[in-house]
């Protein structure tokens, strides 16, 4: 009996390995656990995307539950989620845009013109829907780095005290909203 069990051991190990590797097929490597969850918003002082004389700081954002959505007109997935985000805005969700700019950097494009960018943003939001209360322009991506942003789109859920509750990488669609955001939003509203 003991010997039979021993003979089965390699098969058992093999089956366990199969289960483990099979799970790996469906694991999403983009699902990252970043360091900022549970911490307060980092301090920042950045201009508005549409008006450089207007500046935003972390203190301005406190007091309300909001989504901080990292996006750019260069990013196709961001365009894809604009429609659903606009729906969420209509349902009363406050969404603030953090504009992730690449062209300003001499290492990538170096061709940067704020007026062209504003036109680009306006036409895109007119076409696809405008979910944003306002947009913060992060030209040097300093706030993005402090938040642990690795690209766009990414979305943070922040509570009234300014604590980051969620960091989602990738687009927001009804499925993601239902499974990740809605339960937390409900808790926050109670």
């Amino acid at each position: 009996m003991n010997r039979k069990l021993l003979a089965l051991a390699p098969l058992l190990v093999f089956v366990l390995l199969c289960v483990f590797l099979y799970q790996g097929l469906f694991a999403n490597p983009r699902e990252l656990q970043t360091g900022r969850i549970g911490h307060t918003m980092p301090t920042f002082n950045l201009p508005d995307l549409m008006d450089e004389s207007k500046r935003w700081t972390d203190a301005d954002l406190k007091g309300e539950v909001y989504l901080l959505n990292v996006w750019g007109t260069w990013c196709p997935t961001c365009l894809a989620e604009l429609g659903y985000l606009t729906e969420l805005r209509e349902q009363g969700v406050k969404i603030i845009g953090l504009y992730y700019e690449q062209g300003y950097d001499p290492d990538f494009d170096g061709q940067f013109d704020i007026n062209a960018l504003r036109e680009d943003v306006t036409s895109m939001l007119n076409r696809a829907g405008d979910p944003y209360q306002f947009n913060i322009l992060d030209l040097k991506r300093t706030l993005a780095l402090d938040l642990g942003v690795s690209g766009a789109p990414e979305t943070f859920l922040v509570d009234k005290q300014g604590t980051i509750l969620l960091h989602h990488t990738g687009d927001i669609n009804p499925r993601v909203w239902r499974s990740k955001f809605a339960p937390l939003m409900q808790e926050l509203q109670q």
């Binding site: 990252l32 690449q102 991506r141 780095l145 690795s150 690209g151």
Partner: peptide, 23 residues
């Protein structure tokens, strides 16, 4: 590199890797 997962930030050309290098 947080974006291109199997590269270190010295090898990667991603925007975020460049930002991390500068930092």
């Amino acid at each position: 590199c947080p974006k291109c997962q199997n590269q270190n930030i010295a090898d990667s050309d991603a925007v975020v890797a460049k930002d991390l290098r500068d930092k």
